[in-house]
Design a protein around this nucleic acid. Structure first.
Length: 188
DNA sequence: GACTCGATTTCCT
DNA sequence: GGAAATCGAGTCG
């Protein structure tokens, strides 16, 4: 399956299927263990009120990066799906370039390298210059999971609207999640 | 133009 | 558990 067709689906489906995929930026990265979906008709989504200069990439081609600044200090990395929808990458299990991550993050504790959207972008060196770039070309390498993983679902983190949508997905049992999932909503 | 507030992290008490 | 740090897009006037 091409990346374009993989991402030409609703963000909720893509977010679930991304769990277990390998993501790296300039050879630094790991296994995706936590994602969140944002849809066009979703009050918590940047695309909810239509296209703007910031969220322009969300309305572009599927399979591209959408990178934006959060709280004036962090970058957040998303993968664009159907127009106006995207998947926020919230946590990785670090597998490649741990030394470079440690320098960027200022810690060697594996759990603190990529567990959280802001930590992950800092560890991988993702910034606004990568907004709109293809995920199947340098500096990105994305290898989709070859097998099905047990995935937990739950409410998204850190938002104020549509808090009830269970659009957060995580690899069951991973110690690298940004925070625990409720014990409900778990599926195989 | 000015103001508000966030898809967060860290450090302090 | 709580607040600071930090800034630009979005909103309103």
């Amino acid at each position: 399956m091409s990346l374009e067709s993989f991402f030409s689906r609703p963000a909720v489906a893509v977010a679930r299927d991304l769990i277990g995929a390998l993501l790296s930026v300039e050879k630094v990265g790991g296994i995706i263990v936590e994602t969140e979906a944002y849809e066009p008709d979703d009050p918590a989504s940047h695309s909810y009120r239509g296209q703007t200069s910031r969220n322009r990439a969300m309305f572009g081609q599927p399979g591209r990066a959408y990178v934006y600044r959060s709280y004036g200090m962090h970058w957040c990395l998303n993968f664009v799906c159907l127009p106006g929808s995207a998947v926020l990458i919230r946590a990785l299990e670090p597998t490649h370039g741990l030394d470079r991550m440690a320098v960027r993050r200022g810690t060697t504790q594996p759990r603190l390298l990529c567990s959280g959207p802001g930590r992950l972008t800092q560890a991988l060196g993702v910034d606004g210059s990568m907004d709109g770039l293809r995920l199947d070309e340098p500096p990105f390498v994305l290898t989709l999971a070859s097998s099905i993983h047990p995935v937990a679902t739950g409410p998204r983190i850190g938002i104020t609207r549509a808090v009830e949508y269970p659009w957060r997905f995580g690899l069951v049992g991973s110690p690298y999640l940004s925070c625990r999932f409720p014990d409900v909503g778990m599926t195989a």
